[in-house]
């Protein structure tokens, strides 16, 4: 095809489903593939809209109610009071470490589950879902039990986890990583295995095909995995409370601060901290989306 045909080709590509870089994070049907709506469809679409509206109204309503409930000085206190500021800082740092660890573990685990057949794979698949389905408090309790065993005590001899900052990170990681793995598995499923096969015929070992072909392809999929890991870690309360405790200026993170304020009846402060959490979550989401716009090249 000649160069002068290029614009036409590009136009064509926008209307036809060509493999698209980053498609694994695309959650909406492209406009070109949407079904046309006819008059007869209106009741059905209205019903869909009604159900969606109920849910969206609840989300917007509860956030708005919280915003109007809190006075501005209370939000300011979150950043001026040493205890709350520590909780915010610990939350940000622990969530960031948890996110990095989760993606590190999720990428190889999800690749193994997506591309390799081995005995016991279904069992392993089920085990990977346990942190998602277990009640959060139970995860914290189970972690506490684990670190009472001989092996746990041995580890504690080197790094203290229970009622310490590493415990906060481990408690957040146990849940966040499971979600990151599921997200990465979906991302790997979107990548054509033929690409790896071609790379292998071109001289790559399986590991080289993974590093040079699969990893750049799936890089866009890491953004939603990191986002969901960060969000889960930020909201994690039960396991952190049970396993790491809520010692002020030591293991207190934002969700536990909210819990403690509710315990003493300080609803205004609890709402103030919650608003800061919402703002931070939105900010991180935006940053992740911006980071996801970059394209990668051959390493």
């Amino acid at each position: 095809m000649s160069e002068k045909d290029a614009p036409e080709t590009k136009l064509k590509a926008e209307h036809i489903t060509l493999p698209k870089h980053g498609k694994n994070i695309q959650q909406h049907t492209p406009p070109s593939q949407m079904l046309p709506s006819y008059r007869a469809d209106i009741p059905f679409i209205l019903a869909l809209g009604l159900i969606t509206t109920v849910y969206v109204t609840l989300i917007v309503g509860m956030l708005t109610a919280m915003v109007f409930y809190v006075e501005l000085p209370v939000i300011g206190e979150v950043f001026t009071n040493d205890r709350y500021r520590y909780a915010v800082l610990l939350s940000l740092i622990s969530c960031s470490i948890t996110t990095i660890l989760s993606v590190w573990v999720a990428v190889p685990t999800a690749y193994l589950m997506s591309r390799v057949e081995f005995p016991g794979k279904r069992l392993l698949d089920g085990i990977l879902d346990i942190p998602i389905v277990l009640p959060p408090l139970v995860i914290g309790l189970a972690l506490l039990m684990l670190f009472q065993t001989g092996a746990g005590q041995f580890v504690q001899g080197y790094v203290r986890f229970t009622y310490a900052i590493p415990g906060v990170i481990l408690a957040q990681f146990m849940v966040a990583c499971a979600f990151a793995i599921r997200t990465m598995m979906a991302a790997f499923a979107e990548i054509n295995p033929r690409q790896e096969q071609v790379a292998m015929t071109l001289g790559c070992s399986r590991a080289q095909a993974f590093w040079w072909v699969v990893l750049p392809e799936v890089r866009q999929g890491m953004i939603p995995a990191a986002t969901i890991a960060w969000a889960r870690a930020m909201g994690e309360f039960g396991p952190v409370l049970v396993f790491a405790g809520t010692t002020a200026k030591r293991t207190e993170v934002m969700p536990t601060s909210v819990f403690l304020e509710l315990q003493v009846g300080n609803l205004s402060m609890a709402a103030g901290i919650s608003i800061v959490m919402v703002v931070l979550a939105i900010a991180v989401l935006m940053l992740m989306r911006i980071a996801g716009r970059g394209t990668s090249t051959f390493v």
Binding site: Q195, Q197, T201, F298
Partner: peptide
Amino acid sequence: RNLGLVPQDGALFSTM
């Protein structure tokens, strides 16, 4: 094996 494979869909690497 020193073979070159061209799959039906090309299987091009989208990042390259």
